[in-house]
Nucleic acid binder design. Structure first.
Lengths: 239, 239
DNA sequence: CGTGCCAGGTGCCGT
DNA sequence: ACGGCACTTGGCACG
């Protein structure tokens, strides 16, 4: 159990003071959230720039640096929690936060810090339900949902093309490859299923006696076309 | 030009006070960032729960509600900026933030607010370079990078299977379908290319005289296998 | 508005 | 580390 630590907030700190506060937060494995006017520059796998404006900047104890704008739930820019992190109060009175790893770098240059909050976030276990794995479980509990008379034999069965969601037999004893999707799908799901079926046909030397079944709430027309063209089936499944 | 507004920070506000402050921020199209101990519950396309802990909660003027934990740059939970948003100070002295739309709902129940910052984020134009479109531009400027003697004829050419990145002819005058990827790719890219080639062959009634070329920094082995099996080529391209 | 596809995709789990 | 794939994928551009 770690010592509980106070959350502290600072209004309009001078850049030099903010630099020290952020640095102290980093050294203490704490988080620092800043609101301020800044520019953002990213360089790495791609490169990007954000023009000056008021943003929300967060440095987390895992080393993550991220910048939120006014819209959307995804950061405008970010840096993963590896590599170095430096805070600099520049001669022209700006606060520069810089996260730098082997391949990526992110620089946030604030010309004013309106608010700074230092806090101790807790690590979170989030559990999610309604995933594809949950759908597979339901299908295994009630295989008729896949198709009347369907018998599952294995999950994640390996093929040269990758693991098959559900491997089994239909009412007539034919081998079936079942690909499960939790939401409406497009062409990619049909080709994925097709790859598994082809790979298994080759692997088992049974040239065409293997069926492909795509289980999903719904499919787009192009997906349906591909399934038809390759001779596979679609079995609608509603969550 | 809007009136510049002060960023305000509040340390340890009582839930009832925080509720009013957040509500006022929402009404004024401002943003509110809270640090506090809370649980998080999401229900919609899937459902999820996060156990109690100190998190960073942000409500943006576009209506987005998001929750950051201690790690990673992606929120633990979020809600898009549509639908309703309510703030409630409960009888047992908690602050409940609830975003609700037709299909999704997110509830953040704080038992303590350690810090609350109200601010005015600016909308951001971020420009990114190094996208796939940039790679395509380079290839068009110097088609030999695709292949010696290659001549581009069109970009985003439509086929029944979708738009082709670059459509052109090789040194021998054969039609080529070029699929461009900005990073190392797996099987999906190979099947995507294959779909375009097949569709174009059928469309142009030239049964097999159409080549497929995948341009990417590198490919995985399975991707290479599929390309080989379907008779397509890989042309490495380094950013 | 649905369909298709890119994304600095990210994250998870397997070899 | 590399590979294959799901993800509340999100976001854009086009029919």
């Amino acid at each position: 159990m770690t010592e509980p630590t106070e959350t502290t907030t600072h209004a309009d700190p001078a850049p030099a003071d903010a630099a020290v506060l952020v640095r102290d937060a980093v050294d203490a494995d704490r988080a620092a959230a800043l609101v301020g006017s800044c520019t953002v520059d990213y360089d790495g796998r791609a490169s990007g720039h954000v023009d000056p404006g008021v943003r929300h900047v967060v440095r987390q104890p895992d080393g993550t640096l991220l910048v939120h704008g006014a819209t959307g739930h995804r950061p405008l820019a970010w840096h993963a929690g590896d590599g170095d992190f430096t805070t600099t109060a520049t001669a022209d009175d700006r606060l520069v936060l810089r996260a730098e790893s082997n391949t990526e770098e992110l620089t946030v240059a604030l010309d004013a810090v309106h608010a700074l909050t230092v806090y101790d976030p807790d690590d979170a276990d989030k559990d999610v339900q309604g995933t594809e794995a949950d759908v597979v479980s339901r299908l295994l509990n009630d295989p008729d949902l896949v198709e009347s008379g369907f018998t599952p034999l294995a999950t994640e069965r390996d093929t040269p093309a990758g693991p098959v969601d559900i491997y089994g037999r239909d009412a007539n004893g034919r081998i079936c490859v079942v690909e499960v999707k939790r939401s409406r799908v497009g062409p990619d799901a049909a080709t994925q299923l097709d790859r598994y079926v082809r790979a298994l046909r080759e692997d088992l030397h049974t040239d065409s006696d293997i069926r492909g079944i795509l289980v999903a709430p719904s499919v787009t027309q192009k997906c349906r076309d591909i399934l038809l063209e390759r001779g596979h089936d679609f079995s609608p499944f509603e969550a």
